[in-house]
Measured scan of single mutants.
Amino acid sequence: TTQFTVHSPEQAEQWKEYAKQKGLEVHVQKKNGTWHVTIH
Rank of each mutant, 00 (worst) to 15 (best):
T1S: 11
T1M: 12
T1P: 09
T1L: 13
T1N: 09
T2D: 07
T2G: 08
T2I: 15
T2N: 09
T2M: 15
T2S: 10
Q3I: 11
Q3L: 06
Q3W: 13
Q3E: 13
Q3P: 03
Q3Y: 13
Q3R: 13
F4Q: 03
F4G: 03
F4V: 10
F4I: 13
F4A: 04
F4E: 03
F4N: 03
F4P: 02
F4C: 12
F4L: 09
F4R: 04
T5C: 15
T5M: 10
T5Q: 11
T5Y: 13
T5I: 15
T5V: 14
V6L: 04
V6I: 05
V6P: 02
V6S: 03
V6R: 00
V6F: 05
H7S: 14
H7Q: 11
H7I: 08
H7E: 13
H7G: 12
H7C: 14
H7Y: 14
H7M: 11
S8V: 04
S8I: 04
S8Q: 03
S8D: 07
S8C: 11
S8E: 05
P9A: 15
P9Y: 15
P9E: 15
P9Q: 15
P9K: 15
E10W: 08
E10Y: 07
E10C: 06
E10Q: 09
E10R: 06
E10L: 08
E10N: 05
E10S: 06
Q11I: 13
Q11G: 05
Q11M: 12
Q11S: 08
Q11T: 06
Q11R: 06
A12W: 07
A12M: 08
A12R: 02
A12Q: 02
E13P: 01
E13D: 10
E13Q: 10
E13F: 07
E13R: 09
E13S: 06
E13N: 10
Q14R: 12
Q14G: 07
Q14L: 13
Q14Y: 15
Q14E: 11
Q14M: 14
Q14K: 13
W15C: 07
W15S: 01
W15G: 00
W15D: 01
W15P: 00
W15K: 01
W15I: 10
W15A: 04
W15F: 05
K16P: 01
K16F: 10
K16Y: 12
K16L: 12
K16I: 15
K16N: 05
E17K: 09
E17W: 07
E17V: 07
Y18A: 04
Y18E: 03
Y18K: 04
Y18P: 01
Y18D: 03
Y18N: 03
Y18C: 11
A19T: 02
A19G: 13
A19R: 00
A19V: 03
A19Q: 01
A19M: 05
A19L: 07
A19H: 02
K20S: 08
K20G: 05
K20Q: 11
K20W: 07
Q21W: 08
Q21V: 10
Q21M: 11
Q21T: 10
Q21F: 08
Q21K: 12
K22W: 12
K22Y: 12
K22T: 08
G23D: 04
G23V: 02
G23A: 04
G23T: 02
G23N: 07
G23M: 04
G23S: 04
G23W: 02
G23I: 02
G23Q: 04
L24Q: 03
L24F: 11
L24N: 02
L24K: 04
L24M: 08
L24H: 04
L24R: 03
E25A: 11
E25M: 12
V26G: 01
V26L: 06
V26T: 02
V26Q: 00
V26D: 00
V26E: 00
V26K: 00
V26N: 00
V26S: 04
V26F: 12
H27Y: 09
H27Q: 07
H27A: 05
H27G: 03
H27F: 09
H27D: 08
V28M: 04
V28R: 00
V28C: 00
V28P: 00
V28F: 08
V28G: 00
V28I: 14
Q29H: 09
Q29P: 00
Q29K: 10
Q29Y: 09
K30R: 10
K30M: 13
K30A: 11
K30S: 09
K30D: 07
K30G: 06
K31A: 08
K31I: 15
K31N: 11
K31D: 09
K31Y: 11
N32K: 07
N32S: 05
N32I: 02
N32A: 05
N32Q: 06
N32P: 02
G33Q: 05
G33E: 08
G33W: 03
G33F: 04
G33L: 04
G33K: 05
G33R: 04
G33A: 04
T34L: 14
T34C: 14
T34F: 13
T34I: 15
T34Y: 14
W35G: 01
W35Q: 01
W35Y: 11
W35D: 01
W35N: 01
H36E: 14
H36K: 07
H36W: 15
H36V: 15
H36A: 06
H36P: 01
H36Y: 15
H36D: 08
H36T: 14
H36Q: 14
V37K: 00
V37Q: 00
V37A: 00
V37M: 03
V37S: 00
T38F: 07
T38G: 01
T38E: 06
I39W: 02
I39F: 04
I39N: 00
I39Y: 01
I39Q: 00
I39D: 00
H40V: 14
H40M: 12
H40R: 10
H40C: 11
H40T: 11
